[in-house]
């Protein structure tokens, strides 16, 4: 239950920062917080009360398969974290170019494309 409340809070904070803040770097931070909300929600789906990490040693699958937490959402979240990392890295490179071209990081000054 706590995980769902935390995830919803992170989603709302991330979306608010993404829309309302004017600085480009704060928008990218908001994007990162938004993704964290989704990841926490996804991981908490695989939780099992009193579970152990899904690590197989010496092929003891039959002993731990009933009490281990679900490894599939963890794989999904790892993939998504890597994707978001590369998007953030690329966004930072573009922001360097934005500063070089426009001289400012305020989104309200980037108004040459309208219509």
């Amino acid at each position: 239950m706590l995980a769902y409340i935390a995830s919803m809070l992170l989603l709302i904070i991330g979306a608010y920062t993404l829309v309302m803040k004017d600085n480009l770097i704060k928008k990218i931070m908001g994007l990162s917080v938004f993704s964290s909300g989704i990841h926490i929600f996804l991981i908490s789906l695989g939780y099992r009360a009193g579970g152990i990490p899904p690590l197989l040693t010496n092929l003891n699958f039959n002993q731990i398969s009933a009490i281990m937490v679900d490894p599939l959402p963890q794989a999904l979240v790892l993939t998504s974290i890597v994707i978001n990392l590369s998007i953030t890295a690329f966004a930072m490179a573009i922001i360097v170019d934005v500063y070089r071209e426009f001289g400012t990081l305020n989104i309200k000054k980037l108004k040459s494309l309208r219509g």
Binding site: S35, F102, L113
Partner: peptide, 17 residues
């Protein structure tokens, strides 16, 4: 140039969302 950089950052933010 100016148009491409601005278009790219705006497209990036909207598309990631």
């Amino acid at each position: 140039d100016k148009i491409s950089i601005e278009a790219s950052i705006k497209y990036l933010i909207m598309s990631s969302f």
